[in-house]
Amino acid sequence: MVNWREILANIEQGGLGVRNLAEVNDCLLLKWWWRRVWSDILQLVHKRPAPVEFYLSNLKLSVGNEDRIHLWEDKWLNNLYLKEEFPRLYSLSEEKGCNCSAFVGCKEFTHYHLQTPLHYLNVYLYAFGEPLAWEEEEVLRLHELLRETPTLSLESKDSCQWMANPEGSFTVASAWKWWMYSKGPNLNVTKDLWKNFAPSKVKFCGWLVWRGRLKTVAVLKNLRVLNEDSDSLCLFCKSEEESVHHLMLFCPFVDMMQWWGLVWVLPGLVKDLLLWWSGVKFSKIVLRMWKVIPLAVMWSLWKARNECLFSGKPVEWNELAELVNVRVALWSKLNIEGMHYSVQQIVTNLHQTKACVGRRRLPLG
């Protein structure tokens, strides 16, 4: 069995990329919030704090001549809420819901006239008796903060900019990209597992092997599908327990790699094998062939194991190795545009084929 969280994880992070509908809905809600950017969305902060925080941190407001931006309750100044920066002044203010444009051109003040670059942005904070000394300090601090603001433009409307997108407009894709990145880093191995020209079922088999979820005897015993006293010996060598790593690595893998002319020290785990595999450098075309080799080996081994188990068909290693070669050659022939060699030529003259296609710049299919 595969954990549901692994299925929902992004492909680049080791999952299957099945999208969580609740997370998709949150990203779509951000689009709705963007279209109605002046709506009160903070009521959702307790239900979905992460997307709300992301939204507010990437939203930049520009003050214009409309009444949409609120002085205290919007992040229009240095990405700050004035009500949070000056909680005492906000609690004393009689104009908590006031907007910035309401103070433009106002010449009547109750106690304080804070003349700022915002065309005389007049902030009358409260209508009560003489303030205390520390309250005056807060007023002066607010005054200094407002001096740093850009000039309010009476010729333009209130506007907003989405900082997560270079174009400045909100996209659901930018929100989803952030959501995926917040879950963890991308893995190089998964890129090679999925971004190649092997059939989808072969890629999925490779993913199960990498995750250790292929239903070998050891896995089935761990899931209690098989009894502890069930025969667990490998069908190929009859000497060790059939685990994912033994089946895919220690039986025939080394012999099969002779076709590629590879001499190496075999890793002990499948994930180490694939990690090493992803670090090998070839020309672009040869690299595309290289990426599908472990998948072809794993797929062929698994099919041969099942035929041996359920049909009683003995395994002929020479034929199995030849079958892996043919599969790699066939997939390469069908998916690499400009590959003029036949399947037979690729199989019998692999080194010459690699040398030729490595020097040529064939168009990538």
Rank of each mutant, 00 (worst) to 15 (best):
residue 219 V to G: 03
residue 144 E to M: 10
residue 114 L to Q: 01
residue 134 W to K: 05
residue 199 P to N: 01
residue 114 L to T: 07
residue 119 H to D: 09
residue 174 S to I: 05
residue 213 R to Y: 14
residue 106 C to G: 08
residue 211 R to L: 10
residue 134 W to S: 06
residue 166 P to M: 02
residue 205 C to H: 04
residue 148 E to V: 12
residue 132 L to W: 06
residue 107 K to H: 06
residue 159 S to Y: 14
residue 104 V to P: 13
residue 151 T to V: 15
residue 134 W to G: 01
residue 185 P to C: 14
residue 213 R to A: 14
residue 194 W to L: 04
residue 151 T to Y: 08
residue 158 D to N: 11
residue 129 G to F: 08
residue 146 L to G: 10
residue 152 L to E: 05
residue 150 P to A: 12
residue 203 K to V: 09
residue 219 V to Q: 06
residue 132 L to T: 04
residue 204 F to V: 12
residue 146 L to D: 08
residue 197 F to E: 03
residue 204 F to T: 09
residue 194 W to D: 01
residue 184 G to E: 15
residue 107 K to L: 09
residue 202 V to Y: 04
residue 221 K to L: 07
residue 190 T to R: 10
residue 124 Y to W: 11
residue 176 W to A: 04
residue 157 K to M: 11
residue 218 A to F: 00
residue 196 N to F: 03
residue 147 R to F: 05
residue 178 W to H: 11
residue 161 Q to W: 10
residue 178 W to S: 08
residue 187 L to M: 09
residue 158 D to C: 09
residue 212 G to I: 08
residue 135 E to I: 00
residue 126 Y to G: 02
residue 184 G to L: 03
residue 154 L to I: 11
residue 142 L to C: 04
residue 117 P to E: 13
residue 134 W to T: 05
residue 154 L to Q: 15
residue 168 G to N: 09
residue 161 Q to P: 00
residue 140 L to E: 15
residue 138 E to W: 09
residue 179 W to D: 00
residue 132 L to D: 00
residue 177 K to G: 00
residue 103 F to K: 10
residue 132 L to Y: 02
residue 194 W to S: 05
residue 204 F to C: 08
residue 191 K to G: 07
residue 196 N to S: 04
residue 155 E to M: 11
residue 154 L to C: 14
residue 189 V to D: 05
residue 177 K to C: 08
residue 140 L to H: 09
residue 185 P to M: 14
residue 183 K to T: 14
residue 139 V to T: 09
residue 116 T to R: 06
residue 121 L to N: 09
residue 145 L to C: 02
residue 220 L to G: 01
residue 186 N to Q: 14
residue 189 V to C: 05
residue 134 W to I: 03
residue 146 L to Q: 13
residue 124 Y to R: 13
residue 113 H to E: 15
residue 156 S to T: 15
residue 111 H to E: 11
residue 165 N to E: 06
residue 136 E to M: 07
residue 211 R to W: 03
residue 186 N to G: 12
residue 193 L to Y: 08
residue 196 N to W: 01
residue 175 A to T: 06
residue 221 K to V: 02
residue 142 L to T: 06
residue 213 R to M: 14
residue 158 D to S: 09
residue 106 C to N: 10
